[in-house]
């Protein structure tokens, strides 16, 4: 477990360093994810090593957003007079993005021939 955790943190650190070094728009952890993915593809040992620990962290991914969420409550008044407007924008835009994203995915799957039907 300690090896897996070390590897995950090292990937994140490498990602943070790379993104700062080259001024890339991607955040360090996202590059770290790409890096870990490449390592897992390259080595079955790495893949077996990180799986249990990584899955443990991901099992309660929701928990990790709680501190930031609590921070938002204190800033809600910052939305001020625009509060209702922002609420409308966020709800409508999120619903549209979800519908269009999933809709296009399903349509393109149908057009390109479904090689991997995953209907439940």
């Amino acid at each position: 477990m300690i090896h897996a955790l070390t590897l995950i943190l090292a990937c994140q650190l490498a990602g943070e360093a790379l993104t700062r070094l080259f001024g890339w728009p991607a955040p360090g952890p996202v590059l770290g994810m790409a890096l870990l993915f490449v390592l897992m593809l390259a080595s079955g040992r790495v893949a077996r090593l990180v799986q249990p620990t990584g899955e443990g962290i991901l099992r309660h991914l929701s928990l990790l957003f709680v501190p930031a969420g609590v921070g938002v409550v204190g800033h809600l008044q910052q939305l001020g007079t625009y509060g209702a407007g922002f609420a409308l924008v966020l709800v409508v835009s999120t619903v549209l993005a979800l519908a269009v994203g999933a809709g296009v995915f399903v349509i393109v799957v149908r057009l390109t021939g479904d090689k991997d039907k995953s209907d439940a």
């Binding site: 952890p29 993915f37 962290i57």
Partner: peptide
């Protein structure tokens, strides 16, 4: 832990890598 958890998202991605490759265009 948000940072390490983001890195750990490589794991489900790796587990689904064949499905991901097949769904590249969509």
């Amino acid at each position: 832990l948000l940072g390490p958890a983001t890195v750990a998202l490589a794991i489900p991605l790796w587990q689904q890598r064949h499905a991901v490759r097949r769904a590249f265009v969509p």
